[in-house]
Design a protein around this nucleic acid. Sequence first.
DNA 1: ATTTTTGCTTGCATATTGCAAGTGCAAATA
DNA 2: TATTTGCACTTGCAATATGCAAGCAAAAAT
Lengths: 135, 135
Amino acid sequence: MAKYNKRSDCPVSCSLDVWGDKWSLLIIRDLINAKQCTYGDFLKSAEGIATNILASRLLALEENGLIEKLSHPDSKAKVLYKLTPKGIDLLPLMIEIGIWSEKYYDIDKVKKAELKEVKKNKEEYIKAKIKELRS
Amino acid sequence: MAKYNKRSDCPVSCSLDVWGDKWSLLIIRDLINAKQCTYGDFLKSAEGIATNILASRLLALEENGLIEKLSHPDSKAKVLYKLTPKGIDLLPLMIEIGIWSEKYYDIDKVKKAELKEVKKNKEEYIKAKIKELRS
DNA sequence: ATTTTTGCTTGCATATTGCAAGTGCAAATA
DNA sequence: TATTTGCACTTGCAATATGCAAGCAAAAAT
């Protein structure tokens, strides 16, 4: 995203420059859930991102090294998006988002059950999930 | 922030509706660092937020229950902003942001040293910091 | 009494996002 | 082989959010 200007060298500031917009974290979320998505998969996602915004976010995330494009095994017309290791490393952050949200907002049942599992042993859950996402 | 519309009941989506803009997390960060700030303190912050944006973000964060306004002991002209328990609960999330940023970007020395401490015993650090922020 | 500080608000320019339609290429269908 | 459909985008324009500069009322300092 073409931000107005670079901000400070604070961790929060740096992060926001990379994924601090209205949609990037939702794209990351989809990729954590599904491991890989096509362009169409993202469009079908619950929140309904506009196609031009999706294209610009995917490009920015790719340029920032959080996701990568792979050729689809079934078809040349399709593209597969996956998280890079750098993107996968956002998992702990995403989990904390989940824990915080669950405490203060109504979350759907499936996510709630998943978070219950996470909280049993956070470290282990993260390790296992990372392994799964890298494979 | 008057978003176009509410999104899904996903944790990430809910969170983004509350703090998913360009400035909210930086305000939270300032309050975690300083424990309490005046309006002027935020304006002096490194990134340089515009005063109208600051006002609108502070209002939104207050409406969403993340921060609260207190009267300043020294002066009626001054206002103190502090995190609520709900705001303080964003600390684990902020720490994960720090850890991720440090891994992939150049962070200032002070923050790096702080993160080194955090990683020695994350649980303990969070507990202590929460206690400090609530007092 | 006058000036300065403090926490804002207002008006307007710029940037980002949202919506609808369209384009080019690959794949499926006739 | 010709035509239609699916997929990954692009383009144009409207709506919203952010950035910048100036202004304003109440409190505090001089």
